[in-house]
Design a binder for these strands. Sequence first.
DNA 1: TTGTAAGCGTTATCAG
DNA 2: CTGATAACGCTTACAA
Lengths: 339, 339
Amino acid sequence: MSKAKVTITDVAKASGVSNSAVSYALNGKPGVSQETREKVLKVADQLGWRPNKAAKSLSDARTNSVGLVLTYDPAVLSVEAFGMELITGLTARLEEAGYSLLIRSSRNMRAELDILDDWIASGAVDGVFLQNVELGDPRIELMSHHLEMPTVVMGDESLAGGLISLSTNERDGVRVIAEYCADQGHRRIARVAGPENLGHTFIRDNAFMEVAARLGLQYTCLHADYTPEGGRKCTERLLSLPNAPTAIIYDNDVMALTGAQVAAVRGLNVPQDLSVISWDDSFLCEVNALGITALGHNIIERGRTAAGLLLDLIDGKPVESVWEPQEKLVVRASSGPLA
Amino acid sequence: MSKAKVTITDVAKASGVSNSAVSYALNGKPGVSQETREKVLKVADQLGWRPNKAAKSLSDARTNSVGLVLTYDPAVLSVEAFGMELITGLTARLEEAGYSLLIRSSRNMRAELDILDDWIASGAVDGVFLQNVELGDPRIELMSHHLEMPTVVMGDESLAGGLISLSTNERDGVRVIAEYCADQGHRRIARVAGPENLGHTFIRDNAFMEVAARLGLQYTCLHADYTPEGGRKCTERLLSLPNAPTAIIYDNDVMALTGAQVAAVRGLNVPQDLSVISWDDSFLCEVNALGITALGHNIIERGRTAAGLLLDLIDGKPVESVWEPQEKLVVRASSGPLA
DNA sequence: TTGTAAGCGTTATCAG
DNA sequence: CTGATAACGCTTACAA
């Protein structure tokens, strides 16, 4: 049924040469005659030899895998397409380089730090991705003290503490949305933002305040947690204000959708009475009785890019942080001129 | 900045004992005095020692990681919550046992088989999950020839070729839906199914035909690919039939949503003129102008269960295939009695 | 109770 | 060009 594992020694015996000759032959390195090489290759193939991963890793101090810690938050994780798209992009690029993605799950920041510590000390991975960076994120500090572990921060350069990062131009996104609102005649806009501790929330907060001031818009912001419930509550609150906003921007698709629903329930007509705009575009925004205007993002591509950066870092190539090109606003039925 | 890796030998030297004494102490094994043990533990902690993963794996032929191959199909993967929920469930359970999830990406069955081959021969993982099983799936055959590699099939036992599997009772689900339709007075029902090569599609196909016959329902079935476009086209076709169905069941949430949309565009009132039912429940069904009736599934829990099975298998415990309890139909606004 | 040494499967060094 | 041999860091007989 199952052939016993075939080692390099088996191949050596079977082809009547030494252990090292086999190693040279199989790795395409010089030090072995063409004739021997071919014979070894043939035998290895016949025997179905594959390098043992543990042995190889031990020998050359490389695992050919990189790590990603997922935060176990079923309420949010499962609801957003983001995570899966990211993993898809990461693994697609990693696969090209023969790398695997090693995933572990944490319940909180403390647990995630433990995992990173473990990876650093145990050599379980050749590099790590950092996601959902917070203000003063302890992971940044940790990895800064361990530059021997290649790290790519998937978040704004200003939060990366000098580590290599892949940033999206949040400020541009904010500007595009705010100017669009202003163009459509809105004077009072609001935002249902993500968690306040997240770095990109902070950056958007600042950018929105700045651009609102510049454009003379009245701007209100509430922070929620990306969940349907959070979006619902914040929208209720905003729409109950004496001077309710005429356009609301949501930091993710899920909240935008629930927001639009709340508006409908309150008898508001979207977009005549209220424009709804989502920061993240997705299937949710697209396929919906009412299409939701949203800022486009190509998460899969972002994943590919991040993986490429990490691979280069691991290979010791010179790497610089990347700023992603500005995304475009996809205008759909949920937004328009003020009636 | 970065401390050089600390090995067991470092700890041995620092605590003035031998290499093996350290190993015994750190692994809580007998063969070392209480005094020595404590000293070693303290020193190891101070030095920040962690077992090197490659060395440990090489020594005891275990990697403490299990593999999952993702099929790279951006069109589908990113659209469904399924994948992320599954990974969340898997990693949550694996974490409890100190295991990691190793992910690789394939573009097709051939590539996936190569990856499995590689894992089997290289010992890169201690076990694997098989997902989206097809009829006569070559992966089943492959893993059956390599029982030394623990495998859990996340799919119907009838497709698992004797491997340990985690099945959901598809037939029960089919029955629940069909009986619901019949109860509501529908006589002509249709189904927009998933890809025909998938095992669970096949099983549902059969079950639907059986139960429709039993209940005296007229039943039509079209096969699509889980994408919005597929759902749209099939719905168009069904609604154009001379004797159009009055209830359509979709094999996933995405197609159900687009189906409901198509109906609306054609001037049909859901549910008065047409009932729409989704096989998979999800946020998509829940938060929608029109709630979509759907069969509930707890994918996270399913992931946990699958991971538990695989861990037991790896530990050599006696394991039996599991049938998941029957899911309940969550009735929402998209379905109801025939007008 | 302790230390020595062999072995896990590679890669890489160094004589022949 | 080839074949011993050490090294990677850990576990585990086996000897002291």
